[in-house]
Nucleic acid binder design. Structure first.
Length: 285
DNA sequence: GCGGGTGTTCACGC
DNA sequence: CGCGTGAACACCCG
């Protein structure tokens, strides 16, 4: 479920709560989702402190004080990181899994901190994972990612370079080795804002269209991070409200609704790069 | 009962 | 090799 803005929001929320806290216990309830020997995970983590939580694309990394191995957590489609704190629940992930009580049937790993702080890794479809990586494996995993969309060093020239080849622009935007962190929602929103059909092959794009795609990427991802993402619930407040980017969606999830830009066409849904794709047939060329 | 789904990876086939 | 498709992972929901 989560793309870059959602994972970044989770990262910030968790960091605020977990930094400097001692890990008192770890329970692996579903060993299948832990890519490290569960016994080793427990042995390495218990008694140590969370130093820092970082993010690359949609992947979270937990750095442990006095430990050179790094814990990776990927939420894939339906993963959640829910943190029970004195004030209630914070952080988030896929909103569908029930949170009336924790742990629940979808809780696969539990990290206990102090008396009142517990982190739950939940995943309904169990595509996500937790893994402890050696420094070399960690570096290797991160090397596979393309640049962060908002990295100041990721210039327009670099973006143009990333678009060489002749795949559909949407396939390129979704390719984590080309650009890290864009998923299906923001790929559609970026193409709409740039007024480019997601199925357009990159070798047919004009310099102007590529420039619009670059600007749209930066604008939309930046705004989405500011608004704490789109559809995931953060549960900071008791209402479990959605991420704040929802009102800014122009095409995603709006099939059959009137285009907010031209007002004359309705948004269509098709399949591009194997994913449900939302487009205005008039505004996007 | 069927199909779709905010992600990623891999086997295939052209 | 490049690229696209479909399946697989597994489960809820409309």
């Amino acid at each position: 479920m989560p793309e870059l803005p959602e994972v970044e929001t989770i990262r910030r929320d968790l960091e605020r709560v977990l930094l400097g806290k001692e890990i008192l216990g770890v329970q692996v309830r579903t060993p299948r989702l832990v890519r490290t020997d569960p016994g080793e995970l427990v042995a390495v983590l218990v008694g140590k402190y969370i130093n820092r939580i970082t993010r690359r694309g949609k992947l979270l990394q937990f750095h442990i004080a006095g430990e050179d191995r790094v814990m990776h957590v990927h939420l894939k489609m339906t993963g959640q990181l829910m943190c029970q704190v004195p004030g209630g629940l914070i952080a988030g992930g896929h909103p569908s899994a029930k949170i009336d009580h924790l742990p629940n049937a979808y809780t696969h790993v539990v990290f206990e901190f102090d008396e009142e702080t517990t982190l739950f890794f939940n995943d309904l479809r169990t595509f996500g994972y937790v893994a402890l990586l050696t420094p070399a494996a960690h570096e290797q995993a991160l090397a596979a990612f393309g640049p962060e969309p908002l990295d100041e060093h990721f210039t327009r020239a670099h973006f143009f370079d990333a678009l060489k080849g002749k795949r559909a622009i949407k396939a390129v935007l979704l390719d984590q080795t080309v650009i890290a962190g864009i998923g299906n929602i923001y790929a559609d929103e970026i193409c709409f804002r740039a007024r480019v059909r997601p199925s357009r092959r990159t070798d047919t794009l004009t310099a102007q269209e590529k420039a619009r795609l670059y600007n749209a990427m930066r604008t939309i991802i930046k705004k989405a991070v500011e608004k704490r993402g789109t559809t995931f619930s953060n549960f900071v407040d008791a209402t479990g409200k959605k991420g704040g980017y929802m009102p800014y969606l122009m095409v995603y999830g709006r099939k059959g609704e009137r285009c907010l830009r031209c007002g004359s066409q309705t948004i269509t849904k098709s399949v591009v790069a194997g994913r449900g794709t939302h487009t205005c047939p008039l505004c996007q060329k």
